[in-house]
Nucleic acid binder design. Structure first.
Length: 427
RNA sequence: GGAGAGGUGGCAGAGUGGUCGAAUGCGCGGGUUUGCUAAACCCGUGAGCCCGUAAGGGCUCCGCAGGUUCAAAUCCUGUCCUCUCCGCCA
């Protein structure tokens, strides 16, 4: 979330930002409530001061009568405090709700626009778009999976419902290969590899900007508990520093995590999301970084470059998209997506996403750093980026590497991790 | 899952109703001494927020959330976490 003082001092900028991002937040109401809250807060503090003074004086009273009078006085103040506190709590509740709805400020260079139609393609990968032999029509991954017995969508639906699937045969080995391939690049780049919990406390979800319950939630929550299935390891990795203060020398912290990701994807269906493209569960290697404010922009470029290296290495064509203000998630200051070429749909589809969340997540998480020799603490900056989301990466690999004879060739970059070079129809 | 013990400042650890934001030691910062370093000695050393140009003053925080009380680190309830023992298990 944004700093309350910042909102009060930059009302017009915050309102314009909400408008650019297409978020209907009542900033004026926020200002009104926060102003009132501050007043009430001062009132409570003054009363507390009074009450503290009375309490302290009781220990020094000489006569029982004097003592009884003071006690009565203290009791009266306490009642008064309870009253003010009640209005304060009500203000706080409404304020918090509005404050959570106000998105992060956007990077001044982020393209302004209402939705993904305004996203800007800013770069392309090293690999050219594929050219197919005369008369050959590339299949989509669902058809390929069927022919090569790589994915069982029907079985997934029977067991867990639509949107679930079993990977089978070489697809399983490719999943592990993609993870290892990405991980080895990240470890070389100085990232600490982790496997994270697949569940997290709702507090942590909220801290990273995910809303566990409610109509439009993407999150599966566990009944009779305060746990939810995570939608990304961003949640667990971000939670690592919740309510922590680290020394500035420890920053930047580059982490990556393998986890399963679970998403309800309520109401999302249709041709564009067929097969593996939009599913309820997939595996992902996620990058995450905590850093000093002055490091975050460079680190964001670093994460983007790693994503590009990974897909250039796989020799899959892609474009880099600078996300428009209206299409940014609440915590993002700036976001780049990699969209890989997917022959089955004859178009680009999102495969990675990297965001610089500046101090927006950190403020909610209460993740701070301390500079040695200086007084006080400050909020860290957080960044996240997809290294490889297996379902979509696998989709892109299958479709891009299909051959005229119906087989799929394994990308060179993955061959060190599997003991086959071509996937052929079983018999 | 059952039984017990415990969660206090960067760390260790005292503190069982008021004089406790918290002894003491270590660590850290500054200083004295010193050819240099070390030792010794002296002083200082938590965070968030509010008022104030500042000096300074105030509020909150002893895992977390409530409660009792004029007053809570200290008493009560709930909850989370850690450790030990038992059971179970991969």
């Amino acid at each position: 979330m944004l700093d309350r003082k910042f909102i009060l001092e930059n009302v017009e900028a915050v309102k314009l930002n909400c408008q650019n991002r297409n978020v209907p937040a009542d900033v004026d109401r926020f200002v009104e409530l926060e102003t009132a809250r501050r007043e009430q807060q001062r009132e409570v503090e003054a009363l507390n001061q009074e009450s503290n003074a009375v309490s302290k004086s009781i220990g020094k009273c000489k006569t029982p009568e004097e003592k009884a009078a003071k006690m009565e006085e203290g009791r009266a103040i306490r009642e008064k405090i309870a009253g003010v506190r009640q209005t304060l709590d009500a203000l706080e509740k409404e304020l918090d709700q509005i404050q959570r709805g106000i998105p992060n400020m956007a990077h001044p260079d982020a393209p302004i626009g209402d939705d993904d139609g305004s996203n800007l393609a800013v770069a392309y990968g090293k690999t050219p778009l594929p050219t197919w032999p005369e008369g050959f029509k590339p299949l989509d991954h669902v058809e390929l999976a069927e022919k090569l017995d790589l994915i069982d969508f029907e079985g997934g639906a029977r067991v867990a419902g639509a949107g679930f699937y079993f990977l089978k045969n070489e697809a399983v080995l490719l999943e592990l290969a993609l993870e290892q391939y990405a991980l080895s690049k990240l470890v070389r780049a100085g990232f600490t590899p982790t496997t994270t919990p697949d569940l997290a406390k709702n507090d942590v979800l909220q801290g990273t900007g995910y809303i566990p319950r409610g109509n439009e939630t993407q999150i599966y929550s566990i009944e009779n508990s305060d746990l939810s299935l995570i939608a990304t390891a961003e949640i667990t990795l971000g939670g690592l520093l919740a309510n922590q203060t680290v020394d500035a020398e420890q920053l930047p912290m580059r982490l990556c995590g393998i986890s399963h990701c679970f998403r309800t994807e309520a109401g999302a269906a249709g041709r564009a999301s067929r097969g593996l493209y939009r599913v309820h569960q997939f595996s992902k290697v996620e990058m995450f970084a905590f850093c000093l404010p002055e490091q975050s922009e460079a680190l964001h470029q670093e994460l983007l470059q790693l994503e590009r290296d990974i897909f250039d290495g796989l020799e899959i064509p892609y474009r880099v998209v600078d996300t428009a203000t209206g299409d940014l998630g609440g915590p993002a200051y700036r976001k780049y997506d990699l969209e890989a070429w997917m022959p089955g749909r004859g178009g680009y589809g999102e495969v990675t996403s990297t965001s610089n969340c500046t101090d927006y997540q950190a403020r909610r998480l209460n993740a701070r750093y301390r500079v040695k020799g200086e007084k006080g603490t400050n909020f860290v900056h957080t960044l996240n980026g997809t290294a490889v989301a297996i379902s979509r990466a696998l989709l892109a690999v299958m479709e891009m590497y299909q051959q005229e004879d119906g087989s799929i060739v394994v990308p060179k970059a993955l061959r060190p991790y599997v003991d086959f070079e071509v996937i052929r129809p079983k018999n």
